[in-house]
Design a protein around this nucleic acid. Structure first.
Lengths: 146, 146
DNA sequence: AGTAATAAAGACCTAATTATCCTTTATTAG
DNA sequence: CTAATAAAGGATAATTAGGTCTTTATTACT
């Protein structure tokens, strides 16, 4: 569905959002540890998110990443587009270059409903919503050992 | 959604099924040409499908691939499982090892509906159904130049 | 029997993704 | 102004997905 990079990105953003009322910034090390992702690779992903203004960053001591609490909430689709691109969501299910309503691939119509459902979900759901559920203990970002 | 190999597999099977009342077998070259896929790579995929008994083959002159018309219709999910494995359908959307109803990832519930819809579709739809629509001119397997 | 046609099998190559390492640059505390 | 800290950026390595090539086995037709 999503690339690994995209999964890390979503997890990282949810974690960041889950502690974004804290005025403190969160360092890369902590993020990677909390979402159980490779640190250096996560750094690359954070760079992309930062360039796309999905996240803010500050260098130096007490620096780190943070989400602007005054900015509009981040939609999942923004993250997916930033990391995986639009083709991953809107491309043909069977990989045909020219697949459309008028020249559909064999599964085009059957998959449209699903694809649209997914797209709508990604457009509706925000990182912050998911972060609130995480904080409420309704979900987890990594395996919790008993 | 699916790997390229899986897309080729589905396209190849639909093409084969679309001409399976022909008693003649269909050679690799023709399949690859008709679904616009790399020949050698398609050969590999056909080997897998053949081992999984999703398709039959015959060596030698006038040999080729064919689908047993008396066997039950091939469900899309059989193809996806054979090529991409079950993880591609049932794995966690955020890549968590232990994601379940009791320890869900943040998007678990939201995605369950979509995931289930997809799985049901794959379980219902058959290659042969799609082949009939293809033959009726309602869909295409490759780009048709004007 | 011999030859051509075809799939099967395995080794091999290439490109993209994932991941690591190291250097540079910016920021801050003291 | 220096040392510490942390992100940014570049280079590179490892892994996986995607794809090719060569050889072998099988069959049909002279």
């Amino acid at each position: 569905m999503f690339s690994k990079a995209c999964k890390y990105a979503i997890r990282a953003l949810i974690y960041l959002a889950s502690r974004s009322e804290e005025p403190e910034k969160t360092g890369l090390r902590e993020i990677a540890a909390e979402i159980d992702s490779p640190e250096a690779f996560t750094a690359k992903i954070m760079q992309i998110l930062s360039k796309q203004n999905l996240v803010n960053s500050a260098k130096g001591p007490h620096g780190g990443f943070f989400i602007d609490t005054h900015a509009p909430e981040i939609k999942l689709i923004d993250v997916v587009k930033a990391i995986d691109g639009t083709q991953s969501i809107y491309g043909c299910g069977l990989g045909l270059k020219s697949c459309s309503e008028t020249e559909p691939c064999p599964i085009h119509h059957e998959f449209s409903a699903i694809r649209n459902g997914l797209a709508n979900l990604l457009k509706e759901q925000t990182i912050q919503q998911l972060a609130r559920e995480l904080k409420a203990g309704k979900s987890v970002l990594k395996h919790h050992l008993n």
